[in-house]
Nucleic acid binder design. Structure first.
Lengths: 141, 141
DNA sequence: ATTGAAAATTACATTTG
DNA sequence: CAAATGTAATTTTCAAT
């Protein structure tokens, strides 16, 4: 969206609107801008949510695991959970074989990994970024 | 990123670069563009992964549940899984109380919902969009 | 609001496979 | 010969004064 279009929606003129956006960027509210792509269209038809349990939950070991998965391109998201599984990983692969290879050669053989439970994503009906606020519903005249 | 900058990275001039991008958009490879924001900075400090089991897995009932969660702003992602849990929902809320309210008044009381297991996300160390391909590493001269 | 600059888009000539 | 690219010119749009 262009700045003028954004200003129109916000009900203000362009210059202060741009200043606000810059302020949000500088303050860290806006992390960046991305294009959304269709994984299936690029041959990445397999999405798996891997529930990972670790042997040690010491902070240093948790951090080490986070750093490790951060280097794996197959892992698109890594969330540390409270509960029976320590980490929830979103893994994207071209096919099931390539996921299985990732699972056996990287994930299960990684240090500190106790058990992995793979849940194949059949389909994703909703994938929204951001927070529940509907921007168009805020400050509407 | 502007088109000229993208063309520079691709090693071609601007017009054919723009044509390629539009071809990707028209073909559905690129779904759209958006800004990435920081949920914590906006007061949404609670992220929960809700594992939902349904009573009926008939296609009509699955679709009905997908449509329903699609109307709930608290649900940012909805993935249908193969395994013991039918759906994995990523839910974002301002605090634990507001999540609990969502859980008790919306999710657990929704039609066809059998059981819900909530896994609180302590922290997210990786959140990447797209696929494992590193674009900058492709076709590099 | 105005102005200056940069980018997007079109048309056309050229090259490449 | 067809498809894609590059150059150039035009129109539009954006951002700073």
């Amino acid at each position: 969206m262009t700045n003028v279009e954004l200003a129109k929606r916000a009900g203000i003129s362009a210059p202060p609107c741009l200043r606000r956006v810059r302020a949000l960027e500088d303050a860290g509210y806006i992390k960046g801008y991305h294009a959304s792509i269709e994984p299936d269209a690029l041959g990445y038809g397999v999405t798996v949510f891997a529930h990972v349990g670790l042997v040690s939950q010491a902070e240093g070991d948790l951090k080490a695991f986070e750093d490790l998965v951060g280097t794996w391109p197959e892992v698109r998201e890594a969330h540390m959970l409270a509960g029976e599984t320590d980490f929830l990983l979103k893994v994207v692969a071209t096919d099931w074989d390539s996921y299985h290879k990732f699972l056996t050669t990287k994930l299960t053989t990684a240090p500190n990994v106790s058990h992995v439970k793979s849940a194949l994503a059949i389909r994703s009906s909703k994938y929204a970024v951001g927070v529940p606020i509907d921007v168009d519903a805020v400050d509407e005249d």
